[in-house]
Write a protein that binds this DNA or RNA. Structure first.
Lengths: 244, 244
DNA sequence: TTTTGCAATATGTCTAGACATTAAAGAGCG
DNA sequence: CGCTCTTTAATGTCTAGACATATTGCAAAA
């Protein structure tokens, strides 16, 4: 555990420890600010800051005139990174390659609007990700050029569009859909696997505010790709997805 | 957007708006605390609190003696609910059914220890989840009876083990692995699909503290199951990633 | 008995300072 | 020119108050 360099962090971590260890169960009344002040010999603002950050973390709830209480655990969820394929492959010591199969700019048609929920010019990309020289994932992507005009000038034959977008465009909302499909003839040929091979299909739509930024559909060969999500309620930290 | 009832929230939201709209690009220098003080006519602590919460949200980075800057977009994460199959099916308006195929209690053998990373008595379950009378998912589960002795008395022929565990056992850590596989002969027969059908395979191990609670392997027919994850950055807890 | 009003209290927000810490920039020197 | 030392500027933390706001319990009035 990292050293708490400041007092408000020490207070925060002490209380956090009580909650996560189960010593203070949900609903337990946390000592009043006044008591924590005298316990730590500090000003109220310092205690207040510690408790405030516990509220932000969802570990406690506070009510005026009433007090502070350990929050009911409500999150039954895990954290999953937005996968960046290039970073993934490289992180595992593989060599990454990219082949841009097609790139078009056009007005959004009916199908695009369904995927993007927007109108105006879009860029339609199809590219193949390679790991160690072998096909790894097939990606079909639509980028909303009205929301991301700079994408028109980007060179997606070198840097994968997902990587470019992650760096250049902050996003506020994303929706994922994960399912399994049998590779059809065209897909199996591109990915160089037998027809009917089980593939992991990941569809993602990303927004910034109300504006839809991009919609992507990635097909991974099931045998060579896992999505791994790990959740630790303590640190909220490590989440990994990895290729095998 | 909710009304900012306090000044530090107003300041925070104003700056957040600049960043999310793209007006202030990553790397942009945010006005100094001193300037924001005079702009809003408030004390430094108030500005400091607003900026502090933006740091927690990962939107800005601050460096002593240097200043505050719009953060590079992070590789952020999405929240994936721990799926409860029964609740899922019911939520989609289907009728849920359960068939307990086998239930055994035994000492952990080599394979169990690999899955559970523990010793002692375990309960081994195999059950089939039905949606609208049709096979939906096949589940193989191992429960660590040393960690969850109450499971020995539970009736898993009515309530699915996953549902029972969610309600009765709080967990602190979970690891998921998601991949796609072609159904083998035995699986395809149980799920009543053609052999080779693409299936979504979800493996999950769950801990409470150091104790492994359960390990489960669920096979869904790809054509009838999606995993959906939605993420909104506003509600996100602090995530300390280095910038891309 | 029921309702209304009031006081008590814990948190929410804010102020105007203080000193600590860090890192950039300049000063002095070999 | 390259090195160390000092200055300085911006954030990090903290204090001892202040007033605001929400909620509870109690007391008084209907």
């Amino acid at each position: 555990m990292k050293a708490a360099s400041s007092l408000h962090e020490k207070i925060r971590e002490t209380i956090e420890g009580k909650i996560l260890s189960g010593a203070w169960v949900p609903g337990y009344r946390i000592p009043f600010e006044r008591d924590l002040m005298s316990q730590y010999g500090c000003a109220r603002m310092t205690v207040n800051r510690a408790l405030g950050s516990l509220v932000d973390a969802g570990l406690i709830v506070r009510r005026r005139r009433v007090g502070s209480f350990v929050a009911q655990p409500h999150i039954r969820s895990v954290i999953l990174d937005i996968p960046d394929i290039k970073a993934d492959v490289v992180a595992r010591g593989g060599s990454y390659g990219l082949r841009l199969l097609s790139r078009k700019v056009r007005k959004a048609n009916r199908a695009d609007e369904k995927a993007l929920a927007g109108q105006g010019p879009v860029m339609v990309l199809r590219c193949l990700h390679l790991a160690n020289g072998r096909p790894f994932a097939l990606e079909d992507r639509i980028i909303n050029l009205k929301a991301v005009p700079a994408a028109a000038a980007a060179d997606f034959s070198v840097e994968p569009p997902g990587t470019w977008l992650l760096v250049h465009v902050p996003w506020t909302e994303a929706e994922h859909r994960i399912t399994a499909v049998n590779a059809d003839a065209a897909t199996s040929e591109i990915l160089d696997v037998p027809a009917g091979e089980a593939c992991l299909l990941l569809e993602r739509r990303t927004w910034r505010g109300k504006a839809n930024i991009t919609s992507v559909r990635q097909t991974f060969v099931g045998a060579t790709y896992d999505l791994i999500a790990r959740f630790t309620s303590k640190s909220m930290a490590p989440q990994k997805h990895s290729a095998v």
